Computed example of a mutant assay.
Amino acid sequence: MNGNEEYTQEYFKDFGVWGPVAIIAFIILQMFLIFFPSWLPVIIAVRAYGFWWGVLIALIGVVIASTIGFYIGKSFKGIFLTRIFGEKKMEKMDFWISNYAFGSVVLFRISPFLSNDAISFIAGMLHMKFKKFMLATLTGMVPLSIAIGIFSEDISKLKNGLYWIGGVGLIAYVIYIYIDYSKRRKKNFKS
């Protein structure tokens, strides 16, 4: 354990029960601070409260922030996107949401370099079902949070770890879309 970790732990212990609440509030606030990396609060939580408690606190914050973002997006009811993109592109987006929304949300959640927060707003705007959205959010965020928790123990390994996580997630998603698209083409060709 290095001095910075001890300092972080002591700093948050001074907050008592409000320490985890402050981290969760920060995760929610971070949703609106696009320039601020979404994985940083996970590192802070893990360094302050240890691996398992830190990951749990971060996941609670992500679930709350994602829910807020989803319902803010849903309040636009697609009108905003239709005005920006037009009817034809919205039809393509509807196709994408019906067929690839789950995987898209997982990719955005597991990749530390894609906008974790924007996907909440977009999923809400495009009327993705909330349960499906939340399952996809957790499917991506649980492994990302665990990996960040592991890599944050040695900050020098964190950057490479984040690249590997994002790269593997992106490759898996591209393979998934390619296989699914190929199946759809074969099915349509036979019809």
Rank of each mutant, 00 (worst) to 15 (best):
M1R: 12
Y7C: 00
T8E: 08
T8S: 02
T8R: 10
T8N: 06
Q9H: 09
Y11C: 01
K13D: 06
D14F: 09
G16K: 10
V17M: 11
G19T: 05
G19Q: 04
P20L: 07
P20K: 09
V21D: 04
V21A: 12
A22L: 15
I23C: 03
I24W: 05
A25R: 02
I28L: 09
I28V: 14
L29F: 12
L33G: 01
I34V: 14
F35H: 04
P37R: 10
S38I: 05
V42Q: 10
I43D: 00
I44S: 00
I44M: 05
V46I: 01
A48N: 03
W52G: 05
G54P: 04
G54Y: 06
V55E: 02
L59N: 06
L59Q: 06
I60K: 02
G61V: 04
V62L: 08
V63S: 04
A65E: 06
A65L: 02
S66K: 08
I68R: 04
G69C: 08
F70H: 06
Y71P: 08
K74F: 07
S75Q: 07
K77H: 11
K77T: 09
I79G: 04
I79Q: 12
I79Y: 12
I79W: 11
L81Y: 13
I84K: 03
K89G: 01
M90F: 05
M93Y: 12
M93I: 14
F95R: 12
I97V: 15
S98F: 10
Y100G: 00
F102S: 05
G103H: 06
V105Q: 03
V106C: 04
L107K: 05
R109H: 11
R109A: 14
P112W: 08
P112L: 08
S115A: 09
S115H: 04
D117K: 10
D117L: 09
A118S: 11
I119L: 07
I119G: 06
S120N: 08
S120P: 03
A123M: 06
H127P: 00
M128Q: 08
F130K: 04
K131P: 07
K132E: 11
M134L: 15
L138P: 08
L138M: 15
T139K: 03
M141K: 13
L144E: 13
L144T: 07
I146F: 10
I146M: 09
I146G: 01
A147P: 03
I148H: 01
I148F: 00
I148G: 01
I150F: 12
S152C: 11
N160A: 14
N160T: 15
G161N: 08
I165C: 03
I165T: 13
G166A: 14
L170E: 02
L170Q: 03
I171K: 02
A172H: 00
A172W: 07
Y173D: 09
V174Q: 02
I175H: 03
I177W: 04
D180P: 00
S182H: 11
R184C: 02
K186N: 13
K186C: 03
K187F: 11
N188D: 14
K190H: 10
S191L: 14
